[in-house]
């Protein structure tokens, strides 16, 4: 989980960089070019496959672990106070992860599928498509909610990944935790700012 997770975090950062190009006031030229590169570069195509495998591995592993963990406690407690010793999000990575997965499916069917499988109509640009979607309030809400969950998911996930990989030192633990939280925050804010900006400025 840790390795695939960290790999996906790297992807998220890269994706965020791409998305921020949407904000460049050049009518989408930079973003379109970026998107085009993404599809034409062989190296990127390989990474793309790895990315899909990464997501798949992350999901399959999560499912396997969840099943094992459920089996590890066949009889539940009548009264349980988990809040006394751990945070809700740390205990519900499966739930937040599932929400994110649903979003990824929606997201892929909207862009990736259309762009890569069906192909764009003559006068359509990927930039145009994105701007169009973000003018839809519902889409923006779904998008933002998903990223808030992603934020909490990452907040636990990044430091947790370091712990799992055994990268742990009393001196640096606070830094790892803070960096993890900061990354989660940047990714969430970065991704959610874009649709909000588009929705409120271009609507």
């Amino acid at each position: 989980m840790a390795l695939t997770g960290l790999f996906l975090v790297v992807f998220l950062l890269e994706h965020l960089y791409g998305n921020l190009l949407l904000l460049k006031p050049d009518g989408g030229a930079a973003f379109n070019e970026y998107s085009h590169n993404m599809t034409s570069n062989v190296f990127i195509r390989i990474v793309e496959i790895l990315l899909f495998l990464g997501i798949l591995a992350h999901v399959v592993n999560a499912l396997r672990l969840t099943i094992e963990n459920k089996k590890a406690r066949p009889v539940k407690y009548a009264v349980n106070k988990p809040a006394a010793n751990s945070s809700w999000f740390s205990r519900n990575m499966g739930l937040t992860g599932s929400i994110i997965l649903v979003f990824i499916v929606i997201h892929l069917s909207d862009y990736f599928f259309e762009y890569r499988v069906e192909g764009l109509d003559g006068d359509e640009t990927i930039y145009g498509e994105v701007i169009e979607s973000f003018k839809n309030l519902w889409y923006v809400i779904i998008y933002i909610v998903a990223f808030i969950f992603l934020g909490f998911h990452l907040n636990h996930a990044i430091q947790s990944a370091f712990q799992t990989l055994g990268i742990n030192h009393p001196k640096y633990n606070p830094i790892i935790k803070k960096t993890g939280a900061a990354l989660a925050f940047i990714i969430t804010i970065g991704f959610t700012f874009i649709p909000l900006y588009i929705y409120f400025t271009m609507h």
Partner: peptide
């Protein structure tokens, strides 16, 4: 032995 997996919630350390 059938123990579950660690998901680093940190509950064990607290309890």
């Amino acid at each position: 032995e059938g123990f579950g997996n660690c998901s680093n919630t940190g509950a064990c350390e607290v309890e």
